[in-house]
């Protein structure tokens, strides 16, 4: 009799395991940091792209309602795809674009801007990737929509596409 209970317990336990593993199969096995609403971006100081001046982020983010921080590089192919959306966004009111040039050569990056037009109000250099890590990004391209209190409103990993573009427009309207 005792064994029957034990068997039942085991069967229930393994059924439970089966269900968990079965469900687990559907989850992606790679990790993407979750977007944490209202997280405040850590302020950073970095050199400005053209002037090589040291500038603090919070000194720029003041008047406008929204800022779009976009991490890009001339060697990054998906960055070219999203460029047209950045140009369009730049024409919007209530938003300013801040570029972060990730691990790039100055010459290449400048050529890139000359070839494709420069959508950014200001560009920071991120020669060794430290700024991007401070921001909580993990690759290029990556985009943060923040307000003037440096709160993150939206985060886009990978290139901006029509869908995410519209979402940004919705927010800043």
């Amino acid at each position: 009799m005792k064994n029957k209970y034990l068997l039942t317990i085991f069967i229930i336990f393994f059924t439970f395991c089966f269900i968990i593993l079965f469900k687990g199969l559907k989850n992606p096995n790679t990790y993407q940091p979750e977007f944490n609403q209202n997280r405040v971006l850590s302020d950073f100081t970095s050199t400005e792209f053209f002037s090589d001046e040291k500038i603090k982020l919070s000194t720029i983010v003041t008047d406008e309602k929204y800022y779009l921080i976009n991490i890009w590089a001339s060697w990054c192919i998906p960055c070219r795809k999203e460029h047209k959306f950045l140009i369009k966004l730049q024409k919007q009111e209530k938003i300013k674009l801040i570029g972060i040039n990730y691990k790039d050569k100055f010459k290449n990056a400048k050529n890139f801007l000359n070839d494709f037009e420069n959508p950014y109000q200001i560009i920071f250099k991120d020669k060794n990737g430290i700024v991007s890590i401070e921001l909580g990004a993990y690759g290029v391209p990556e985009t943060f929509l923040i307000n003037k209190n440096l709160q993150i409103i939206k985060k886009i990993i990978g290139p901006i596409n029509p869908k995410t573009y519209n979402e940004i427009i919705e927010i800043i309207k």
Binding site: L7, F10, I11, F14, C17, F18, F22, L25
Partner: peptide, 15 residues
């Protein structure tokens, strides 16, 4: 899915 089912088939029958 296939191996999972097979695995639990083995577990349950041996149990």
């Amino acid at each position: 899915v296939y191996i999972l089912i097979f695995l639990f088939f083995l577990i349950f029958s041996s149990l």
